[in-house]
C-alpha cells in the first residue's frame, strides 16, 4: 500500500468530520433547530460559538442540522443518479443499435436545457417535498453519469473478455454487472465524489432560490438566503453556511482527486 498523500489525508479527515456531524446531529448540536435563544445577529460568543442568525437562533446548531439535510439529499440524489445513469449507460454501450440511439438522444435532449432551469420549472409545478427534490436532482444528474459510463463501457465492451462472455452465452445482466462494472468502477467512484459536490451546490442553489428545502427545515443554501441581509451590515452569519459548503466541496474533491490519480496511474487497474 502506497502512502496516502497529505492532501488526501486532510480531505479524508474533513469529509469524515462532516459525515459524522451529519449522522449524529441530534446529539452534537448544542441547541434545538428552531429555538429563538438570543438577539438578532449576535457575534460569536462562549454561549453561541458562531453567533446567532436573523431571528436569534444559534447558527452552529442550525449549521449542524442543515448539514444533515444537505448531505442526505445530495447523497441520495447522487446515488440515484449513479444507479440509473450507469446502468443505462452500460446498457447503451452493450446493446448498441436503437437502444443506444434512443437513450443517447433522450439524454442529449435533457442536457440541451440548463439543468437549473429544468429543475426550477419542474419544482414550481410539483409539490416540493424531500422525495420530489431527490428524484428531480437525481434524474437530472443521471444524464451526466450516463454519458461518462457509456463512454467507459464502450471501451470495455470491445475487449476480448467481453466477447468471450458473449460467446459463452452470458446474458446482458452478467455482462454488465460482472464483466463491465468491476472494470468501470474506479473512474465512476472518482466521478461520484465530484457529482456529490455538484449535488450539494445544486440543492444549496435551489434552497437559496426558495425552491429547495422548505422552512422550518433548513439546509446550508437556505441559511445563506435567510441571513443574506446581514452581509450589508457586516454580519458574518451568512458567511458561515457558505464556508461550510466550500469546506465540504474542497475536502470531498481532495479525496476524489486522490482516488482518480490512484486509479489512472495504477497499472493493470483497468487492464488497458
Amino acid at each position: 500500500m502506497r502512502r496516502i498523500p497529505l492532501s488526501a489525508l486532510i480531505g479524508l479527515f474533513f469529509t469524515g468530520l462532516f459525515l459524522f456531524t451529519a449522522l449524529f446531529a441530534q446529539w452534537i448540536a448544542p441547541y434545538p433547530l428552531d429555538a429563538v435563544l438570543g438577539g438578532v445577529w449576535e457575534p460569536p460568543s462562549a454561549q453561541f460559538w458562531l453567533g446567532t442568525d436573523t431571528i436569534g437562533r444559534d447558527i452552529l446548531s442550525r449549521l449542524i442540522y442543515g448539514g444533515q439535510i444537505t448531505i442526505f439529499v445530495a447523497l441520495l440524489s447522487s446515488l440515484l443518479a449513479f444507479g440509473l445513469g450507469s446502468f443505462l449507460g452500460f446498457l447503451a454501450a452493450v446493446r448498441g443499435g436503437w437502444v443506444d440511439q434512443l437513450l443517447s438522444r433522450l439524454v442529449d435532449l435533457m442536457m440541451a436545457i440548463p439543468s437549473l432551469i429544468v429543475a426550477l420549472v419542474v419544482l414550481s409545478v410539483l409539490p416540493i417535498s424531500l422525495p420530489v427534490l431527490i428524484l428531480v436532482m437525481g434524474l437530472l444528474d443521471a444524464t451526466r453519469v450516463f454519458r461518462l459510463s457509456r463512454a467507459v463501457a464502450m471501451d470495455i465492451a470491445v475487449m476480448d473478455y467481453v466477447e468471450a462472455a458473449k460467446l459463452r452465452g452470458e446474458g446482458q445482466i452478467w455482462v454488465i454487472f460482472r464483466e463491465i462494472l468491476p472494470n468501470a468502477l474506479s473512474p465512476l467512484v472518482a466521478e461520484f465524489g465530484l457529482r456529490f459536490i455538484f449535488a450539494v451546490l445544486f440543492i444549496s442553489t435551489l434552497s437559496f432560490l426558495g425552491l429547495g428545502i422548505q422552512p422550518p427545515l433548513s439546509d446550508w443554501g437556505g441559511m445563506v438566503k435567510e441571513n443574506k441581509d446581514g452581509l450589508v451590515y457586516g454580519k458574518s452569519a451568512a458567511l458561515m453556511p457558505a464556508l461550510a459548503i466550500a469546506a465540504l466541496a474542497i475536502s470531498v474533491n481532495l479525496v476524489a482527486d486522490w482516488i482518480l490519480s490512484r486509479t489512472s496511474s495504477l497499472k493493470g487497474g483497468r487492464g488497458a
Partner: peptide, 25 residues
C-alpha cells in the same frame, strides 16, 4: 439463436491473452 450446447461445444482462444481475461477476476 444458438443453443447453449452449440455455444459450449465451440470455444475460442484469443491472440492477446491479456485482454481475453477480465483483469478483475
Amino acid at each position: 439463436s444458438r443453443s447453449k450446447d452449440d455455444l459450449r461445444e465451440l470455444q475460442m482462444i484469443y491472440q492477446m491473452a491479456d485482454v481475453a481475461m477480465n483483469p478483475r477476476q
